[in-house]
Amino acid sequence: MSARANAGAAAGIIRFSQDGHWDQDVQVLLRHARSEAVVAVSNPTRSTDHLRLGQVVVGDLLASGKQVRLLYSPDYLESRDRQPLLRHSSQGAQIRVTDNDFHNALIIDRRVAVLWSGAGAEQPYAYLVREPAILRTLHQFALLTWQSACGLGNHLDSHGAEFDEMSLKVLNSLNLGLIDEAAARRLGVSLRTYRRQVAELMDRLGVRTRFQIGVRAAELGLLTPGLD
């Protein structure tokens, strides 16, 4: 993509193939973000390299203080591991989910965008866009869709299979500030089982301390007072 993009940058819109090194080329664009990136994924590609590299680069952007908005379809969330999403959320990414139709898109600093087809496309394609008028339209449409979407926490809360009843009870015990022994007795489990549940929740929520568990659980709307 790089050579073709450089050769035709003045054209404003460049079509290129998704084969070859396009994954790496898109990641290079992301790494050069100056202040913000909007990533909208409705129908992802099947490339595991693209997914893995995307997770790494989003993490790098957040670590360097860039603003990152992530817009996903429910189908995307159902097909992917939630832990990277929860970790990105804990790092400051703004993540929302929508049932509305939208196109796979990446918009960087409102100065360059990439549109691409997802898995199952008969003729996979991708476009690099630098035309200012089109970029403004893409950015406005992406933000309007993002603003009308629901937060990741609300989505997970409405899809309670992600956190079973015992997990929610453990979260509430932690929120009440109960010591492990008291919480285990309250829930009718062994101390070892309770501590294992806490460790699993820390891993699933992408946090390192029990205090952070409470913060993330509150942000995701997982705390349910009265659940004993």
Rank of each mutant, 00 (worst) to 15 (best):
M1C: 09
M1I: 01
A3M: 07
A10W: 05
A11G: 05
R15P: 05
V26D: 08
H32I: 01
H32Q: 12
R34L: 09
A37H: 01
A37Q: 06
V38H: 13
P44W: 01
R46K: 08
D49G: 02
R52E: 13
V56Q: 14
V58I: 13
S64Y: 01
R69Q: 14
L70R: 06
L71M: 12
E78H: 08
D81G: 02
L86M: 13
S90D: 06
A93S: 10
V97Q: 01
V97I: 15
D99I: 07
R110L: 10
V112S: 12
V114I: 15
L115Q: 11
G118T: 04
A121V: 01
Y125C: 07
Y125T: 10
E131R: 15
P132M: 10
I134R: 15
A142C: 09
W146V: 06
W146C: 04
Q147P: 01
D157R: 14
G160E: 09
E162Y: 14
E165L: 13
V170E: 08
L176R: 14
E181H: 06
A182E: 14
A184M: 07
A184G: 05
R186P: 00
G188I: 02
R192D: 13
V198E: 06
L201G: 02
R204G: 08
I213D: 07
A217M: 08
L223I: 15
